[in-house]
Design a protein around this nucleic acid. Sequence first.
DNA 1: ATTTATCTTGACCGTTTGGTCAGGTTAAAA
DNA 2: TTTTAACCTGACCAAACGGTCAAGATAAAT
Lengths: 212, 212
Amino acid sequence: MSTKPAVNGAHKAAIRQENEEQILAAAERVFADFGFKGATTARIAETANVPKANVHYYFSTKEALYRRIMEDVCDHWLEAAMTFDNSADPALILRGYIEAKMDLSRLRPYGSRLWAHEIIRGAKFSSEYISTTVKSWLDSRVVAIRGWIAEGKMDDIEPYTLMYMIFATTQHYADFGRQIEIFNNDKPLTDAQFAEAKENVVRIILKGVGLT
Amino acid sequence: MSTKPAVNGAHKAAIRQENEEQILAAAERVFADFGFKGATTARIAETANVPKANVHYYFSTKEALYRRIMEDVCDHWLEAAMTFDNSADPALILRGYIEAKMDLSRLRPYGSRLWAHEIIRGAKFSSEYISTTVKSWLDSRVVAIRGWIAEGKMDDIEPYTLMYMIFATTQHYADFGRQIEIFNNDKPLTDAQFAEAKENVVRIILKGVGLT
DNA sequence: ATTTATCTTGACCGTTTGGTCAGGTTAAAA
DNA sequence: TTTTAACCTGACCAAACGGTCAAGATAAAT
């Protein structure tokens, strides 16, 4: 067997990276499906196709692995958040944000479901992150919306309610994807169906707050 | 000690009923907080203030207890569903249904969170219930909405999207209640705040589908 | 070629879990 | 009062759990 002629320990580094990625991907799925307590390290290992002991070689504890994945999920969440700047037309901003959140639910449903587990359980691992990073982001968006209202650009609605509505509706397509699938005659939404849903969500919300 | 003079075994029956209720209430909370796997019979017993063995005296297995609670939750869900008849003005019907769902999230958050756990996990225990009872109810509502659209009473939106939006938004106040609480400076929404949210949700959705 | 550092893993361990059970207490029936 | 049926529970058990470890395999450094 032995080694590729790679320079400077590149092979070992590649092994480490590949194994970590494999374990993280498996853990995201398993945690999303079963929650923190319901997920077992044995199942994560099996899903990742590595022996259980190897999971603990790369991630000291189950909790460390969980925290690491929560960080990754939050990073993606912040990415979508960035589409919500306040420099342009309110209708365009809201549309862009809703579409970004819908796409995230479509492309990374496990992350959304993991987050849902975490919050339902009482946000034990993430209450600090929510009360600092997320809250300050949300509050600044609320200020922006209040500004639009004051300028007469949209209806006088309660901004938090609007934001929660966007959170809830977009994440519903990930968190309750199984239920939607059952309602859709046990078939996942096609791309066309999902695109139609996305457009309808945007339309209803924009019109609902007087931005049409 | 001994017995009240109650006729015909009424005391024993009362004991049974009270214990079952106490265990069911405790189990609903614990299952909602930790999910099926995360909940432990010991914790349920502790919450219900009975010895663990007594839980198994009244409910043979953890799964039996879980199924029983799911049934109760579904019963309440159907109650709210009944407010959505199709005999009157669309705006009044939708308003009534949204308000009933919001109230349910406020008054019985545990049930909603339990349901969320169940769906996220893949609806292992309830897929049949969803694909029969719930689906046929939902489909009939969709037909009603299509009728309203055909009559020109509201905008031409995709009815399933609207229904999912209502599900998502109303249940969000239960399922993500902890997150909302954190955003609200770590204080639960007051009755006034909740009432305002409810009114805003109704207003945005009704206007969003052209029912104002 | 030898040493060193990292990666790999089957076997193992203490704890927690859902569930059982024998033996007791209490209330209703006879 | 005696018998019977229902209720109660501390003590227990096998299985599953998160985590450890020694010993081997592989790759990088000397």
